[in-house]
Amino acid sequence: MYTQALDLPDGQPAAVTSPAPSDSALQAHFDDKISQEQKIEPRDWMPAHYRKTLVRQISQHAHSEIVGMLPEGNWISRAPSLKRKAILIAKVQDEGGHGLYLYSAAETLGTSRDQMLEALHSGKAKYSSIFNYPTLTWADVGVIGWLVDGAAIMNQIPLCRCSYGPYARAMVRICKEESFHQRQGFESLMVMMQGTPAQQAMVQDAVNRWWWKCLAMFGPPDSDSPNSAQSQRWGIKRISNDDLRQSFVDATVPQAKTLGVSLPDPDLKWNEERQHYDYGAIDWDEFWATVNGNGPCNQERLATRVKAWDDGAWVREAALAHARKNEARSLKEAA
């Protein structure tokens, strides 16, 4: 889900060109490690395309976390109880933290935080397109916790076994913190569904708006994802889009029943033969339109991040200037 744009043709052929003769032993050693499920670490030799793919995937995952702070952050000031306000701040703060762990992991591959942010702010880098939709009511916050974080968890757990060590370790840390995110969302929806008619209607409306978007989060069907195969061979992508999506639907349908909400899909039904839920057709045109910049909030999300960065420049410079002044002073004293 963080690699939606990686599947777009960028002029590079998917085939790997054969390495120079002096690299063949290194390539063999690398391939060996991958096939034995050993970790690749920052100072290990790795194919240039592996490094490039990881930088893009990890940084886009990080960008998703940061941009993801905005739709839920939208409701912090108006949270309807002090407990919910505290929970939401903690959750959004965690998302910032997750972005930070991921930027750190990506930096081990030879890029810098500032470079990655420049790619995001200029529109070159992507982030998970689910965050280009608006949070129109308080119930959206609960639904994001239940469905969006639920989908993210499905994607993240296999990444804990990713071949690249720093990414796998960041994911382990993230998954430990993530369990509270989905639970708090679901719990808040349960309370609302046991509440007033207006609260119940708010929840159902939010589910109606978010359900299909969450299914699309897992990315295009496997038949439309040519580069997934390479990522899977490299131990970066462990499970296919369609398989993850199916697991998500199967897990979520009973949860919706517990909540007492209906899922807006007339074609959703249990298939006894497949032992899975059948579901209806996703609107991939709408998905790609949003990924490509024409969703409801794309401009606002990006402009908000750019503004925070630009407005913060004087603050970051002040800290550095002060640190340098201190250093100069202590050198002078030592002399």
Binding site: L70, I89, G96, T304, A308, D311
Partner: peptide, 10 residues
């Protein structure tokens, strides 16, 4: 809390 998501550095 108004700074959440808008701070000068993560």
């Amino acid at each position: 809390a108004e700074w959440c998501g808008h701070g000068p550095a993560l």
